[in-house]
Every structure is written in structure tokens, then in C-alpha cells.
Nucleic acid binder design. Sequence first.
DNA 1: TTATATTCGTTAGCGAGACAAACATTAGTC
DNA 2: GACTAATGTTTGTCTCGCTAACGAATATAA
Lengths: 160, 160
Amino acid sequence: METPAEPRFGHSDPTPEQLRAQFGRLLGMTAGHTQRIVNGALADVGARKYHFAVLATLDEFGPSSQAQLSDRTGIYRSDLVATVNELAADGYVRREADPGDRRRNVVSMTEAGGERLGQLAAILTRTNAAILAPFDAEERERLTGLLHRLLEHVADRGSW
Amino acid sequence: METPAEPRFGHSDPTPEQLRAQFGRLLGMTAGHTQRIVNGALADVGARKYHFAVLATLDEFGPSSQAQLSDRTGIYRSDLVATVNELAADGYVRREADPGDRRRNVVSMTEAGGERLGQLAAILTRTNAAILAPFDAEERERLTGLLHRLLEHVADRGSW
DNA sequence: TTATATTCGTTAGCGAGACAAACATTAGTC
DNA sequence: GACTAATGTTTGTCTCGCTAACGAATATAA
């Protein structure tokens, strides 16, 4: 088992079987590439996905506290601080103290924020389409259906 | 109005439409949960996926230089240094200077490393099975088939 | 043969993302 | 008024992917 023998000149770099066989790896690599594409497109305009998540949430629910934003986006409260900071610095959101509850901040989207959301949404629509390009409508449905089921199963706390 | 603060990834508030609609998010969240499960299982025995990747590669190709390991696992050379350090510290691999090329190190798996690989492989087999539990054979094939196609498309450098 | 280029391992560091711990302030309840 | 709970914030940890740079060794071209 610990004897020499071996490659030396094998210039090809095949992926080992045991690695390729892992479903988690397949999923992870696919997601990794996909996210790299999406993140790259967002980064081109100086955004991250947290920005889109917050903006989209504000658009749908209106002014919210940070705790609400955290619950609805899944972003940790601690990470939300930085996200709101960044969005506020660019004038996309406003953060004001809630007069009714002084622990709270009310975060609301500005006009510029609405435009920004439109820009980011367009980017995401575009990249999502490009990513799914090789699939026809039926395959997309199958894929998203399977992924939804998988997500539900895998997100089920208690079983893990 | 609000629920207790915790269960991270399964939020309590409704997920905004624009977020839910993103395919990238679906893929990302699914992969995220999956990897958390896998990483958690590996972490329980003090391992990371890089460890498994290197061990599995050594098992299949025999003693290799770090550059070869990097090529075959996809781990960056710089990150491989730490990985080999860790594995060597635990006695799972040996790192020796290559007498034939003094720039190189020859990394080889020890007996303990072989056992470790068996342990990690068992963990991965188990978690992969659990993850795919809700699917029957035909669905698994469909899912992996679709993911493979997606991976190929999305990993295609040049188009992005 | 000498100069130049390339390879290999290594160190250091960045940034995103997911997450935990602790804390001060403020509200609500007993 | 004391106790508890929620909110926002700071700080820090860890994995992962990725970049830059460097010294040593080797390969190649002039």
C-alpha cells in the first residue's frame, strides 16, 4: 500500500472516482459555479446578493425593522447591519429611529433604491436565463421541482 | 407578530416573491443546506472536505506531488499546503522531498490515512443516502442527470 | 553557457457568506 | 421596581475560493 509505482508522467488530471461519486459534490460544484456567475454579474455593478435580498424585501413589504428584514431574508441580524450600512451609504435605503419603539430602526427604500432594485432584478433575470439556457420548459420544471423537494427535505430541522 | 429568533434557515416570515423566484437562490439554498449537513458530519470527526478529497485522490493515484493533488482535487496550491499540514500532523499522510526533483514534495498516504479515508467515506456514503432519501431510483437519476448537464454548461469557461 | 522562463511549494491576505457570543438600550410584564 | 425579552450592534470565528508574490529548483532557448 505504501509503495511507489506511479504517475510521474500522467499529465491528465482526472477527477478521482470517489470524489465524482459524491452527490453533495455535484450539487455543491454546480451551485458554486452558478453563484459565481450570479455574484460576478452583481459585482460588476458593485452589488452583492444581500443587497438584492434586502431591496426586494423592502419593495414587497414596505418599511421594516432590521429584525423583520432578517427574518424575511434569512440574513443574520449581525450581517444585516453591514448590509444596511452599505445600502444607506449609497442612498438606496434610509435608516431612521422608530418613534414608536426606540429600540427599532425603520429601514425604508428610497427612490434611488427602487431604481437600483430594478437594475439588480434585470441582472438576475438575465443571468438566470443564461444559466437555464440548455433546458427546455419541461426540464426546467422537473429540475426546479426536484430541487424544491430536496430543499424541503434537507431544510427540515430535526432530522439532522 | 414576531416569532422566536432562532431556527436559522427556515424563516418564519414569508419569503419575498422576488427572492423565491430566483433559480440561483433555490440552487444555492439547497446546496447550502446539503453542504452544512455533510460538513457537519465531517466536522464531528474533526475533518473537512478537503481532507477527504486529498485522501481519496492519494488512494486512487498513489503518492503525488502537491501540484498533482491540486490539479486533481481542484484545491488551490496555496490551500493545499494547509490541508497537507493538517493531514500530516494527524499522521494520515507523509510529506517527503522528492529526490528526483528537489522542488517537489511527494505526499503519500499512511496506513492510518487509509483507515481515515474509510471512515470519511462511510460518513459521506451515509449522509448522501440520507440526503437523497426522499427520491426513488428513477428520480435520483433524473436529478443527477440534470445537474450534470447544468454543471457542464455552467462550468464552461469562455461563455461567462 | 548563460540568460530567461517556468514550475513547485509556501506565506500572506482578501472577501463573501454563514454563524455565535456578548452587550447596551429599550419595552413589556409581573 | 425588578425581571424578562427584543432590537441593533460589535466583534470574532470558520470554511471556501481566489490572488499576489517570493525563493528555490529546473527546464528552455540564444
